[in-house]
């Protein structure tokens, strides 16, 4: 039996956030709560493992976190020039948090919304990364950091100069300004929208699969879930690598200057 007799309504229902407030104060409660819960998982694990690290006999979660940390650290070492104390924790958090949020996609799509509706909650979207507010929020934070480091490492004047002379030289500065502004703005936008787009599309496919008759769901559902294990890992990895890349670019001097 399909999940509903009205597919459009079903999909619209699943794409509506649990929202309170209006205008600026419109708050997606489900996005915030689930991202906080997953953040709390990350915090709890980090705290418990980080509190009593065993250098000689690492076990369980510590092994896992060490492996992730070294993986992230290798990515940073191969991309990032010089040293920044922030880049490691930032990339680590991006990778793990995004992975956890993406992994919510693997829960059966109707499970938590059904439980919520039984409790009287009308809408529930459980994958925070299918909400552009999450992905763009992270992307904008990264963007703010790139601007900060551009100012700090290259100096405000050099940074602003790059808007004038890049990419066509000083004589075409009006075009340069437009080009560079677009280029700079495209970075956070593409960073946030790539993750959002992938996860949103993935969720949509799960919804379409849920609309199939029950006996036809296992094959596409299983296949898409298995494929999605790859997607959620890959997307969190890409988000992390791009974060490192953008910060690395902010730490590199102008092409002409070095």
């Amino acid at each position: 039996m399909p999940a509903t007799n009205n597919p459009v309504e079903y999909i619209e229902h699943h794409l509506t956030n649990l929202q309170v407030g209006h205008g600026f104060w419109s708050i997606h409660l489900d996005t915030l709560i689930f991202s906080w819960l997953l953040g709390a998982v990350l915090v709890l694990i980090s705290w418990r493992v980080g509190r009593k690290l065993s250098p000689d006999a690492p076990s369980g979660l510590q092994n896992l976190l060490e492996a992730i940390l070294e993986f992230v650290d290798n990515q940073i070492k191969s991309t990032f020039p010089g040293y920044s104390p922030l880049i490691g924790p930032l990339a680590f958090t991006v990778f793990t948090w995004v992975f956890l949020m993406n992994a919510m996609d693997l829960l059966p799509i109707d499970l938590l919304p059904k439980v919520a509706s039984l409790l009287g909650i009308p809408h529930l979207r459980v994958v925070p990364t299918t909400d552009p507010y999450t992905t763009l929020g992270m992307a904008l934070t990264v963007f703010a950091l790139t601007i900060y480091y551009n100012f700090r490492v290259r100096g405000p004047l050099n940074y602003l100069k790059s808007f004038l002379v890049h990419p066509f030289g000083i004589w075409l500065f009006p075009i340069n300004i437009v080009m560079t502004v677009i280029e700079e703005l495209a970075k956070p936008l593409s960073l946030g929208l790539r993750l959002f787009g992938n996860m949103f599309a993935g969720e949509l496919v799960f919804m379409l699969i849920a609309l199939l008759p029950w006996w036809a769901q296992w094959l596409p559902g299983g296949a898409w879930s298995i494929f999605h294990i790859l997607v959620i890992t890959l997307q969190s990895f890409i988000f992390m690598v791009l974060t490192i890349m953008y910060l690395a670019m902010a730490h590199t001097n102008d092409e002409g200057a070095h």
């Binding site: 600026f24 953040g39 958090t93 948090w97 929020g137």
Partner: peptide, 17 residues
Amino acid sequence: NVTATLFGQMLTFAVLV
């Protein structure tokens, strides 16, 4: 739109980092 959710997520991200 630019909403509190966006800033909430930015803040969450910063705190987590």
